[in-house]
Amino acid sequence: MPNIIKLDGSVHNDEWQVVARPADGESLVVPEGPALVPVDLWLAGREHFADRSDIGVWFEGHDEPETLDGLVNELPLIAVNFPKFADGRGYSIARLLRERYGFRNELRAIGDVLLDQLQFMKRCGFDSFALREDKDPAKAARCLNFFSQNYQAATDNDTPLFRRRAS
């Protein structure tokens, strides 16, 4: 199982299985145990998952977070896929889920997640990270806290530095 990095830099085994989108004409097969299904398929079959507290969803960059408006906190975990490191749409999805839709549970970055992105993902509201397989999870703690102060307000601190210094 791949490793998951938490905000404190600790490394954990990933209990959650990401369920790939089925090919055309195939049905969604959800395994036993914790699973992440595509958000649109969860919405389409929500009644089938009502008795399972171990089902979360994952977003692609083109998925809209408002599809979960009013439903976000029914989910124990939401993951956002970064298909390549240069695709920044996942940062916006994370901020919207946290700030506009009030998601309080675990928000995970999956896909092409690199060490140098962790600090910025944390600022957008992610609290767990599935690093790309070729990256060293032992270096994650340093990368999560690379900067001691941030100038701008963000999900992790809504007061900009000039206001923090003034008080």
Rank of each mutant, 00 (worst) to 15 (best):
A79Y: 06
L36R: 10
G33A: 11
F103D: 03
L114I: 11
V113E: 03
I110D: 02
D112F: 03
V72H: 04
F59P: 01
A35F: 01
G111S: 00
A94G: 02
R100L: 04
D116C: 10
P38H: 08
M121F: 08
Y91L: 10
G61P: 06
T67G: 04
R46S: 13
S27L: 14
E106W: 05
T67D: 12
Q119P: 02
S53C: 13
I93A: 06
Q119G: 01
L71E: 09
G88I: 05
G88T: 00
E64P: 00
F82T: 03
W58R: 11
V57C: 09
D69T: 11
M121G: 09
L41K: 06
F49G: 04
I110K: 03
N13A: 15
S92T: 13
W16E: 00
P22E: 00
G111L: 11
D87P: 12
W58C: 02
G33Q: 08
P65V: 05
D40M: 12
E60V: 00
L41V: 12
G70Q: 01
W58Y: 10
V37S: 02
V80C: 14
L43S: 12
L114Y: 07
D116K: 07
R95H: 02
D69Q: 14
G61W: 02
A94D: 01
V72E: 03
L75P: 07
G25K: 12
E15A: 11
F85G: 12
P22F: 01
E106V: 08
N13E: 14
G111D: 01
A35Q: 05
L41R: 13
G56P: 07
V57S: 09
D54S: 12
V19E: 00
F120T: 09
F59K: 01
S27G: 12
I110A: 01
N105L: 06
L36P: 01
R52P: 04
I55G: 09
L118R: 06
L115M: 06
G70W: 02
G88K: 04
E64K: 12
A20E: 10
F85Q: 14
M121Q: 15
V30P: 09
G102S: 10
E99V: 03
A86I: 11
G61N: 13
G61K: 07
F103P: 03
R89L: 14
Y101P: 03
I93Q: 09
V57I: 15
L68W: 06
R98N: 10
P31F: 03
G102N: 07
D24G: 13
G45V: 03
F59S: 08
S92H: 14
P34Q: 10
A44H: 04
P31H: 09
L68H: 05
G70A: 02
V30D: 07
V80F: 10
D51V: 13
L107H: 00
L28S: 05
Y91C: 00
R95F: 00
D116M: 10
E26G: 05
V72K: 04
